Computed example of a mutant assay.
Amino acid sequence: MNDTAQFLALALMLLLPLSALIARRPPLGQTVKFALAWIAVFAVGLLLVSQFDRLPSLRTLLYDQQVVGQETRIRMSEDGHFYADVSINGVERRMLIDSGATITALSQETARAAGIDTESAMFPVALDTANGVVEAKRGRAETVRVGSISTRDLGVVVSPAFGETDVLGMNFLSRLGSWRVERRSLILTPSNQE
């Protein structure tokens, strides 16, 4: 939404309550108080919307991850994807869950923070991604935890081509007892064997 459209929307939102006040013809002092209250409400709302990306607690309320019994439920984000709060070797990251990715893919920064050794890998691997073929190094995460689900010794690939993106792939999902989507929520159920 451009600035002009935002201004017009805000003006319309302010005009409606003001016109209701004027139609009732309350005393001027009361009208000014109501007008200032409405302006404050809309200003706070506008501030929250404009700073949405900087408010992780607000994002968590809207795109939360909950443990219900043994299941971990992750609500779909606005972009139609599922993002999980994941612990990799004790390092917390927000990761895209992608059933189209064969293997879990980590950014170099995440791999470094989690202490994942990629130097032992003799040769890089070529991966066919949505952005073409990229070269990556193999590594292993000792522990990966998502909500109530924990797994050990998970294979990962690391590449500068991934940028800052971390992806939880099918090699993680295949270790689950089950996973499914119901009413815009991804439901992960642990395996009894993990």
Rank of each mutant, 00 (worst) to 15 (best):
R94W: 01
G100H: 04
D153P: 02
L10G: 04
V86Q: 07
R75P: 04
E71S: 14
Q65Y: 11
V144N: 03
V144A: 03
M170C: 01
R73Y: 09
K137F: 13
T60D: 15
A40T: 15
I116W: 03
G45R: 02
I103Q: 08
V32N: 01
S87L: 15
L61D: 06
E164S: 13
I22Q: 11
D64L: 07
I149E: 02
P124H: 06
S87M: 14
L168F: 09
A43W: 04
G45S: 15
S50W: 05
I88A: 03
N89Y: 00
L127F: 06
D166H: 08
V41D: 00
I103K: 03
Q30P: 04
R180F: 03
S174P: 04
T104E: 00
P26R: 15
P26A: 12
D128C: 00
I22V: 15
W179T: 11
M95G: 12
I149V: 14
A20V: 14
S99E: 05
Q65W: 12
M1I: 10
L28M: 13
I187E: 10
P124T: 11
E182C: 04
L8R: 08
A20F: 14
Q6D: 03
S191V: 11
T129R: 05
G29A: 15
V91K: 06
L36W: 02
I103D: 08
D3W: 01
Y83K: 06
S150N: 06
Y83A: 09
V32G: 05
Q66C: 00
R184F: 08
L47T: 01
V41K: 00
V181K: 02
P17F: 13
F123S: 11
N171Q: 03
T102C: 06
V44N: 01
D3T: 05
A126L: 13
T72C: 07
V156E: 07
L16A: 14
Q65E: 15
R138W: 00
I103G: 02
V41C: 08
I74M: 07
H81E: 08
E135N: 06
T4D: 00
L36D: 01
G139Q: 08
V68H: 07
R54E: 04
V133P: 03
S107M: 01
M122I: 05
F52M: 04
D98T: 10
Q65G: 07
L10M: 12
A37F: 14
I116H: 07
A9G: 09
T72R: 09
L96C: 07
L168W: 05
P190T: 12
F82Q: 08
S174F: 03
A5W: 08
R73D: 08
N2T: 03
S120K: 12
A101W: 01
E194P: 02
V32I: 15
D85P: 11
M13D: 09
T118W: 04
V167M: 06
E92F: 13
A126T: 11
R140V: 14
A23K: 09
I39M: 15
I149W: 05
M170P: 03
L15T: 13
V125T: 06
R54N: 08
A121M: 00
M76K: 14
L173Q: 10
I97A: 06
P26F: 14
V134F: 05
R112M: 10
T102E: 12
S107C: 10
V134Y: 07
F34V: 11
L176T: 12
V134R: 03
E109H: 12
V144T: 06
T31C: 10
R180K: 13
L8H: 00
